[in-house]
């Protein structure tokens, strides 16, 4: 199917234009078909976050749905010890998620093909991965490490979805505690800021630039709109309608134009129906 398979001599890594190395992957040792993984060192102009160190991170495309984090970690351990595996639906920069959530409250992850960022402990592992021969496939499910799919997996998922009420209650309580704390902190911060805005004894106000996005009072879009509408209404009230002759004439003109438009619309509607032969009764 992929001609690139045949072009390269055996025991050679297969590198395609664009710098990706093709690794093949199959589910079991007896599988007949193989998926192709595309790996490359992670390289971006400015990686802000420390989770993906540029020299130690391998970027992997096309990871099949039956390879969750654990399996990927095991698969790539043959190239060197793996520190972290991050699987995502689409390539993109690392996103800081909000407060830490228990797995029961996380939105259900999409099952499907993933892209992965694999952080090795050692930067040499990347070279090892990239020079892995194309015709030696990675095997997902082996006897030592079976991967569950199908009915087995679903039954397992069903069992894992259970949670004890008291445990759930505990999670909720701890989260809400956290939440209350955060709220309090925020309120305190605001209060502090408000205090800063006030005059001191000598009548001075301290003016600071302040960090972005923390204004004392958040403006809302709706409020802005309301104000604008108020203005417009005010203007309208002051206007006189049909006071001058030219105004009157204009209104009439508009009316006729409106009627004309409607008439044309009707005519077009009919023409359209006629074109579709919508008038043939049988």
């Amino acid at each position: 199917m992929a001609p690139s398979k045949k072009k390269h001599a055996s025991n050679q890594p297969c590198v395609i234009p664009g710098g990706f190395t093709v690794l093949s992957l199959q589910f079991g040792s007896d599988s007949v078909a193989q998926h192709q993984l595309y790996v490359k060192e992670h390289k971006v102009r400015a990686e802000k976050c420390s989770h993906r160190p540029l020299d130690r991170t391998l970027f992997v495309l096309n990871i099949p749905p039956y390879c969750p984090e654990g399996v990927v970690k095991d698969l790539f351990s043959q190239f060197g010890s793996v520190q972290l595996v991050e699987l995502r639906d689409h390539p993109g920069s690392f996103q800081e998620s909000g407060p830490k959530l228990s797995r029961f409250f996380k939105p259900a992850a999409k099952q499907g093909f993933k892209v992965g960022y694999i952080v090795f402990h050692n930067s040499s592992s990347i070279k090892a991965a990239k020079s892995h021969p194309h015709d030696v496939p990675l095997v997902v499910s082996t006897e030592q490490r079976p991967v569950r799919t199908g009915v087995q997996k679903w039954i397992q998922a069903y069992t894992e979805s259970f949670i004890q009420p008291d445990k759930l209650q505990q999670i909720v309580d701890s989260f809400m505690e956290d939440y209350d704390k955060r709220k309090e902190e925020e309120a305190e911060k605001q209060k502090e800021e408000a205090e800063q805005q006030q005059e001191d004894e000598e009548g001075w106000v301290k003016v600071t630039r302040g960090p972005k996005g923390t204004k004392a009072r958040p403006h809302s879009e709706a409020a802005n709109k309301k104000a604008l509408q108020k203005e417009i209404r005010k203007k309208k009230r002051k206007e006189l309608l049909n006071f001058y002759t030219w105004q009157h004439r204009n209104t009439q003109k508009e009316h006729i134009a409106e009627l004309r438009k409607k008439f044309e619309e009707d005519k077009q509607r009919i023409a359209l129906l006629r074109a579709q032969r919508k008038f043939k009764p049988y």
Partner: peptide, 28 residues
């Protein structure tokens, strides 16, 4: 990179084209 799910590549010179890896999909 964003559209490589279940695809294999085909190299013709400098051009790299992706096509669905049907055999592997059927196996999946």
């Amino acid at each position: 990179t964003s559209q490589m799910t279940a695809r294999s590549v085909e190299v013709t010179g400098e051009q790299v084209n992706a096509i669905p890896n049907v055999e592997a999909i059927l196996e999946d």
